[in-house]
Design a protein around this nucleic acid. Sequence first.
RNA 1: CGAGGUGUGGCUCAGUUUGGUAGAGCGCCGCGUUCGGGACGCGGAGGCCGGAGGUUCAAAUCCUCUCACCUCGACCA
Length: 574
Amino acid sequence: MRMSMMLMPTLREIPAEAEVISHQLMVRAGIIRKVASGMYSYLPLGRRVIEKVEKIIREEMNAKGGQEVLMPIVQPSEIWKETGRWDVYGDEMFKLKDRHGREFCLGPTHEELITDLVRQEVKSYRQLPLLLYQIQNKYRDEIRPRFGVMRSREFIMKDLYSFDCDEAGLDASYEKMYDAYNRIFQRCGLVYRAVEADSGAIGGSGSHEFMVTADNGEAEIAYCPACQYAANTEKAEGNPSDEGQPAAKNAAMEKVHTPGMRTIEDVSNYLKVNAKDIIKMVVYEAVYSEKAEIVAVLIRGDQEINEIKLKNYLDCLHLVMASDDVIVAAAKTSGGFVGPVGLTGVRLIADKTAAAMGEGITGANEADYHFRHVVPGRDFIIGETADLRTVKAGDACPHCGKALEITRGIEVGHIFKLGTKYSESLKAVFLDENGKEKKMIMGCYGIGVTRTIAAAIEQNHDENGIIWPVPIAPYPVIIVPISSKDEVQMKKAQELYDRLNSMGIETILDDRNERPGVKFKDADLIGIPLRITVGKKAADDDLYELKVRSNGEDHLLGLEDLLLTIKKVLEPIG
RNA sequence: CGAGGUGUGGCUCAGUUUGGUAGAGCGCCGCGUUCGGGACGCGGAGGCCGGAGGUUCAAAUCCUCUCACCUCGACCA
């Protein structure tokens, strides 16, 4: 492509609205332009990168037996009501009505539609397993879109759905996808990590997220430097040190005056004890589809409750911190002095750290008083125990006991064992060898295509701009003639351009009448992996300068050597 | 939804406190000199200052309302 013909509006300055580097560079390099909050147009360069990533994904999906389909973006409400997700998704779904007043939504995902298709067309175990996927726009009305296309309201996603006869089949499909995802992200040139993920209220038997490591990723990952354990902190387990934790002293429970001491910090300072000597109680309101419930959670004072774990444990729709009114109604006192002793009518759940305490200090359910020497099991009854705490760096790894570390990442892929969640609610059944009706066992597997691109930039850039990994570069090669007025240079550049094109190598010829500095800056900014400079040395001696964007390497080569070298650099990727 | 902030030419921003006919740099168009890492000179085009209403002889500037966007929080496959 001749650059003089391209729509490639590069910017010298950083757009005010862009916070993270990938967003800034995508705008500056003329890859995207914003249309509305969380909605972007992809300009020619961006469109090309999308194609490259999609091509890799298609190849790997097809290699595993995936078949591509294409489903509508606009979906009728009926099917969503059948699974109950019309309400669960709520405001995050873009909803609309047609002229007859029928309700539709813009698809945030496609479990409903694909299951509807398969339940109609698949009746026999002979037709299974099936791996169906599509690559297409998704719509989620995020509360707060941010970071450019990293969290946008319209984005491109590859979503594959697996349908199997039994759990073993699902395991096999899941393995295939796990393997394919590793290949995809490797081919995209990304440094990433597959981590155990929260499988949500779906309660499936497994889920992994593929996280591209990046400092400003939105997700937190806990990982063990010694063994393979890695998990999203939403679900990660770890064992906090119990050093210095008080043992039961056999002392009787005692009420102490703690005027105005509401927080863990207040109480520990006032009573001259450690935070871990205190049993913290937090009151939540859990909302289910039919009812609501007051839940009190106990946890050791120096630990934090993981609300996602709690929500999953309760299997509720929403979870909110109880308001003061609710707390007063339940515990006869306001927040800060609540405790488990004598508490009635409230579901009490102890985190494992609280249940393990020999004794501790709790609120007395009376303003300005706490109890000390409270022994769990003696002074109050622990109804339920669960793992509800948030992991911290330094926790012992649940597998090998080494100290866990925490890092940040961008979630670019998520694979999920769904089991029968959708086949049950949508009655997707088949007849097995014995003529017996069975539910299909499903899995779903997503890759955020546009987010992957942002992640790739986040991980591959320098002060001059983007450094595309070769396989996803919009063009692998750019030719820069130094002087557009020099006929010999331009002729040589043109010949080289024709030669590369005839070899099937997509090339940009920067034929603009600009000074060399401008061309170099633009070539760096848009991140083309290989740059060939055609200057005096080319005009006089047929020597071309090949510069590698990623490492700055420079080679001065004759034409045939040049072509050979380029071929070699690009070949392994094909 | 809560808190804070910003809207002035394509981009980055001054001007608002103290009302008096709209500015700079970059980009864009033309001519010339340049041409190996974002050149320089000269001449141009381009803005009803986010929108509506109000105060005033006079509003980018003051007041009210509203919209959009950004940041933090809550929330979130």
